[in-house]
Design a protein around this nucleic acid. Sequence first.
DNA 1: AAGAATCAGTAACCGATGTTACAATCCAGA
DNA 2: TCTGGATTGTAACATCGGTTACTGATTCTT
Lengths: 209, 209
Amino acid sequence: MNEKIKEVLEKSPFEPELKDEILKYGRLKKAKAGQTVITPDDEAQEMPLVMSGLLRVMRSDENGNEVFLYYLEGGETCAMSITCCLEGKRSSFHVVAEDDSELWMMPVSNLDNWITKYRSFRRFVFNSYQTRFDELLHTIDSMVFMNLDERLYNYLLDKKIASGSFEIKKTHQQIANELNTSRVVISRLLKKLEKEDKIEQRRNYIEIL
Amino acid sequence: MNEKIKEVLEKSPFEPELKDEILKYGRLKKAKAGQTVITPDDEAQEMPLVMSGLLRVMRSDENGNEVFLYYLEGGETCAMSITCCLEGKRSSFHVVAEDDSELWMMPVSNLDNWITKYRSFRRFVFNSYQTRFDELLHTIDSMVFMNLDERLYNYLLDKKIASGSFEIKKTHQQIANELNTSRVVISRLLKKLEKEDKIEQRRNYIEIL
DNA sequence: AAGAATCAGTAACCGATGTTACAATCCAGA
DNA sequence: TCTGGATTGTAACATCGGTTACTGATTCTT
């Protein structure tokens, strides 16, 4: 049961004692593709470490609109979960499993202690913040500086990199939901990208060229 | 010269020894309104503490477009500067003095040490991250979920709160720059807000009702 | 006081995006 | 095999926001 996390920790830069603590205090959480893993009203004060799979972080408003922010990949943590738990405030975002995924959930009550004791953990947390800030800023860039067709193309490239595959298995409707626009618009723009030889469309998936 | 920072530290929750270190290792930096305080290509590895005044953080792209992200007020620090320095990567943002401001600049080389030694400093830094994340997310909300008129109104309210004044001394052109749109559009929408009795326009400033 | 510069108001137009409606195709289950 | 649901294509239209051009008002400079 704990073989997988041991394997993940093996490759991490954490100190041996920290690895022991992570093993001791954490718990495994599995999520099937499509399942919501973390919601703002989660009571559990836990910080996640992604062991395998792919997760997507979404922002939503009170009217049920939502928009994709960034992916969480193996070895990463969710900076927003950490701050969210720490400060008790709940910002509206949720994390959905894009593929079947495994997480190692650690109580945030350990955070202060680990930060103090382990240099590698400090680096891990701050590096995570840096990465998330960067990704949020890229999201902002694409929303405010680019037209939808560019933003869509960036979104597809992003997914390609995160999944490591040229084939993107999403429907137009799903893409529209993640970019907070409508299906018709996405169909239109995908057609345009196809004409520009940037993608090819197959049924139920898109191929990046 | 150091009276002001002593005063600021007086009101802070920092431990006495930390206050001493901050005093010892920091330096004063003054900025006149309109002046750029921090740019991505700053070599100085310093984290700022805002002592007085008001700063605005802007995001810009390679084409010279820019957009307002959030304000930094007294007692706050710039989370992005911290991570930026720490990880050596430079994300493109810059900080401009909105009013005449005073900053206390501290070398980031102290960060790891202070984080380890002082609980109050850990709380300060993490709280800062939380606040910035929240503000970035609000910025994203307004860009992706709202029409420009709502976004403009939010922007004005934001400024009202940050400055503590109902009078916003900005030209239409300046507002257009910060929202990455054009002057004509802002004039049009301000007129609309005026008709909705949300604001009143005077020469060179706007009054929030 | 005259002229220049800045700022704001307005109209006309256009392209990007959102909306509605309907058709065509494919797939899965009865 | 038939049928209903899901997916995609497309057209027509509405709205929002961006652009250009011009005007009038105020302030600044000399």
